[in-house]
């Protein structure tokens, strides 16, 4: 059975809430039913049929083609199945998702992977502020799962993150890992200012020495971390080849709060 495809018609003049377009909600719906789903965010009614050409059938595999930064909440609360996006997406990509997979070829807006608890979100290009941060009404950011961002991120990456793994190919913005409770950020292109600000537990792994280090991170020197080997091998299992080796410099902090988190800077 062919994948269910949503092909965007024109750039919409309002933001779209695409959270209804997840397998769980679409299973068993006719094309007509799907086209009638309201996705507008203003008082002007806008349905799926207005904004998208709908093709295919299999709601377990959903494709979005030609989307742009106004397409919000794609894969929000996703509980299983796969979503592939050829284009950019708006805010809250995969927010609160619990399982399944989302792949985006373009860039994502703010709050990508916010408060997700499981599954995998892969963004090929950039992500906005607060990726893996707290969704509205949640007290914590990402609580599990795996988020990969090929390019740069905005500020507050992994804010109040509780668990899970984020890998960033490019540079993270200011306050990466701000207020983070636990979990792991792998930062391959460095970060802006104030990385790890308010970090309680949790790990910021820098593959290269970052430019700015908060003074409230305290040096523990270089040593071996079998965890890095485990992580490297696990990442390889997902198709990501990142050399982590076993040796890293460990800085502990943020001493301004609990101080039981760490920066691991590969040696």
């Amino acid at each position: 059975m062919s994948a269910l495809v949503f092909e965007m018609k024109d750039t919409p003049d309002q933001r779209l809430d695409l959270s209804p377009l997840v397998p769980e909600r679409l299973n068993g719906l006719s094309r007509k039913d799907i086209q009638a789903i309201e996705i507008g965010t203003t008082r002007e009614t806008l349905t799926v049929g207005d904004a998208f050409k709908v093709k295919g059938k299999n709601a377990q595999e959903i494709h979005f083609d030609g989307t742009d930064e106004r397409c919000d909440k794609i894969g929000a609360k996703l509980a299983g199945g796969e979503i592939f996006v050829d284009g950019d997406v708006g805010s809250q990509l995969g927010a609160r998702m619990t399982d399944g997979k989302i792949e985006v070829k373009g860039s994502a807006g703010v709050l990508a992977g916010a408060s997700m608890t499981g599954g995998h979100v892969a963004i090929r290009r950039d992500a906005g502020d607060q990726a893996a941060g707290p969704a509205f009404g949640e007290t914590m950011g990402m609580k599990g799962g795996f988020l990969t961002i090929g390019g740069d991120t905005g500020a507050l990456l992994g804010e109040r993150m509780r668990r899970g793994l984020v890998v960033v190919g490019g540079k993270a913005g200011d306050y990466a890992g701000g207020r983070m409770i636990a979990g792991t950020l792998v930062l391959r292109g460095g970060a802006g200012r104030y990385a790890g600000y308010g970090l309680r537990r949790g790990s910021l792994i820098f593959t290269e020495k970052p430019k700015d280090i908060l003074p409230t991170f305290s040096d523990s020197g270089v040593m071996e971390f079998d965890y890095l080997l485990l992580l490297e091998k696990w990442l390889r299992g997902t198709g990501m080849r990142i050399k982590l080796g076993g040796r890293a410099r460990r800085l502990m902090g943020d001493m301004a709060v609990l101080g039981k988190g760490e920066m691991l800077i590969l040696a």
């Binding site: 200012r193 104030y194 600000y197 308010g198 908060l214 003074p215 409230t216 991170f217 305290s218 040096d219 902090g253 943020d254 001493m255 301004a256 709060v257 101080g259």
Partner: peptide
């Protein structure tokens, strides 16, 4: 020289008497 966010962090660490180096 420290920025305001850094000063806040440093003062907080000092209140807790945790370790840091400047």
């Amino acid at each position: 020289r420290a920025s305001l966010p850094e000063l806040v962090a440093l003062l907080a660490a000092n209140v807790r008497e945790t370790r840091f180096d400047i």
